[in-house]
Computed example of a mutant assay.
Amino acid sequence: NPIYDFFIGHELNPRIGSFDLKYFCELRPGLIGWLVINLAMLTKEWELRGSPSLAMILVNSFQLLYVLDALWHEEAVLTTMDIMNDGFGFMLAFGDLTWVPFTYSLQAHFLVGHPQELTPAAAAGIVLLNALGYFIFRSANSQKNTFRRNPNDPKVAALETIPTATGRQLLVSGWWGMLRHPNYLGDLIMALTWSL
Results as ranks from 00 to 15, higher is better:
residue 119 T to G: 14
residue 3 I to Q: 10
residue 74 E to F: 09
residue 61 S to G: 11
residue 54 L to P: 06
residue 194 W to C: 08
residue 11 E to N: 15
residue 86 D to C: 02
residue 182 P to F: 02
residue 76 A to D: 11
residue 143 Q to E: 14
residue 186 G to M: 02
residue 76 A to H: 09
residue 92 L to D: 02
residue 35 L to R: 06
residue 182 P to Y: 00
residue 67 V to T: 09
residue 41 M to G: 03
residue 149 R to N: 13
residue 51 S to I: 01
residue 133 G to Y: 00
residue 36 V to S: 08
residue 18 S to I: 08
residue 48 L to A: 04
residue 76 A to Y: 11
residue 180 R to T: 15
residue 94 F to S: 08
residue 95 G to Q: 02
residue 55 A to E: 03
residue 43 T to A: 11
residue 181 H to D: 05
residue 151 P to R: 06
residue 144 K to N: 01
residue 42 L to Y: 12
residue 41 M to K: 01
residue 193 T to N: 06
residue 131 A to S: 15
residue 149 R to F: 09
residue 88 F to I: 07
residue 71 L to A: 04
residue 49 R to G: 11
residue 131 A to C: 13
residue 142 S to E: 14
residue 173 S to P: 04
residue 119 T to F: 02
residue 52 P to V: 08
residue 156 V to L: 01
residue 45 E to R: 00
residue 139 S to K: 13
residue 15 R to S: 13
residue 7 F to W: 15
residue 106 L to R: 12
residue 6 F to R: 04
residue 79 T to M: 11
residue 176 W to S: 10
residue 147 F to L: 03
residue 138 R to N: 08
residue 129 L to A: 15
residue 142 S to H: 13
residue 45 E to D: 01
residue 56 M to G: 09
residue 150 N to G: 06
residue 147 F to G: 01
residue 167 G to K: 01
residue 129 L to V: 15
residue 172 V to T: 07
residue 69 D to M: 00
residue 95 G to N: 05
residue 139 S to Y: 06
residue 80 T to R: 01
residue 107 Q to T: 09
residue 192 L to V: 14
residue 48 L to S: 00
residue 90 F to G: 00
residue 78 L to D: 13
residue 37 I to S: 00
residue 161 T to P: 06
residue 139 S to L: 10
residue 76 A to N: 08
residue 154 P to H: 10
residue 131 A to P: 11
residue 17 G to H: 03
residue 21 L to N: 08
residue 174 G to N: 06
residue 57 I to L: 14
residue 2 P to A: 12
residue 83 I to M: 12
residue 115 P to V: 05
residue 49 R to S: 13
residue 6 F to L: 14
residue 112 V to I: 03
residue 130 N to T: 07
residue 172 V to W: 01
residue 193 T to E: 07
residue 185 L to C: 07
residue 29 P to N: 00
residue 4 Y to N: 15
residue 1 N to L: 14
residue 20 D to N: 15
residue 126 I to W: 05
residue 71 L to S: 07
residue 157 A to R: 10
residue 82 D to E: 15
residue 35 L to M: 11
residue 193 T to M: 10
residue 63 Q to N: 10
residue 167 G to D: 05
residue 121 A to V: 07
residue 74 E to G: 11
residue 74 E to I: 13
residue 6 F to T: 04
residue 54 L to T: 14
residue 55 A to V: 00
residue 57 I to N: 07
residue 117 E to C: 07
residue 134 Y to I: 09
residue 48 L to W: 00
residue 95 G to F: 05
residue 74 E to Q: 14
residue 72 W to Y: 14
residue 178 M to Y: 15
residue 97 L to E: 05
